[in-house]
Design a protein around this nucleic acid. Sequence first.
DNA 1: GGTAAACTATACAGTCATGTTCAGTTTAGG
DNA 2: CCTAAACTGAACATGACTGTATAGTTTACC
Lengths: 191, 191
Amino acid sequence: MPTSTPKRRADAERNIETILRATHELMAHGTLPSMSDVATASGIGRVTLYSHFPSREVLLEEVLRRGIAHTDQVLTELALDEQSPAEALALVVRTSWPILDRHRRVRTIALAEIGPETLRRQHDAAFQHVGRLIERGRAAGDFRTDQPVDWLVATFYAILHAAADEVDAGRLTSADAPALLISTLLSTLRP
Amino acid sequence: MPTSTPKRRADAERNIETILRATHELMAHGTLPSMSDVATASGIGRVTLYSHFPSREVLLEEVLRRGIAHTDQVLTELALDEQSPAEALALVVRTSWPILDRHRRVRTIALAEIGPETLRRQHDAAFQHVGRLIERGRAAGDFRTDQPVDWLVATFYAILHAAADEVDAGRLTSADAPALLISTLLSTLRP
DNA sequence: GGTAAACTATACAGTCATGTTCAGTTTAGG
DNA sequence: CCTAAACTGAACATGACTGTATAGTTTACC
């Protein structure tokens, strides 16, 4: 579905893209940017910025929405259903890892500004991929059935984020992470 | 060691206590409080507040420091070394759980204000209890040795926090959490 | 009961961010 | 090439917060 097209001029379109990219960049760097920060970083006037995004909240939400939509698309393209549960899990980890590495801080920063419930709702799409995967694994007898699926999904993402934090702290290299993750995740999922 | 006693009057002492409690309360409620907020919530004048804590940063750090010191003390008193590793793990979970429930948000809120490195340094004390426990379990052959201890500790806390988040989200009850946690944690730690 | 410590309210200075208005310039696109 | 869309900087109004200073009142404690 094409996003509703209110006949924007090409330069406007381009600037919006620039703004969103710059905002993401700033957030990924760890700071909650002010509108002035965004304008400066984008090389765009503050007034123009406001003409595209009526408030900072809207801007941040849009940055988040795009990131999650992107992740969702990538996970969808993996065609997880065509693999065995264990293979699919490894695939998800190896694919999600570099993406997570880029989006993790954005999520944390946004968390402070917009509510956790908004964030959660946005995230649900991505969560569902893992949820389906786990349910399939349970049906096939590969994964444990003595704990709620919700909990297994929650631990899955918690462990993923833990790895990201460990990389940040310098106690783990980004290259070592996937293997370690798959090993730990299988431990939590196996019967 | 008695904290250095610069001859404060009893009412001052009492007010400081009140301020710290109120600040903790506000942070636990999910908001990063301003100095005015703290003063109002404490029923104490803003000027008095400043006379005890020269800046907001100092106040927040002190709140955090006390929380961690308290946790550390509780964990120390458990005498973990006198139990088997698996029993000690269960004990840590059951003990840490209610404490975590009260301090988790404080930590998140503080994170936004003071740097992550300050927070990390403060947290290290608590982490060491779990670190020692895991190393002891490895030596006894009860816990796995194919992953770094640092990683096992990181997953331990990540899973604990995940449970807290699930309770927040209403997908898990606080009462069910400990059993689920112990089960999951043992899965990640067993060889 | 006297004195210094501690508290209070009010007021002020300074900073920073948000969002808006205006008047003027550039540029996309038919 | 013309016009409307898009952009620009400068200025303005507003509000929140941080700290500090002042002058006066209450209270702990010897």
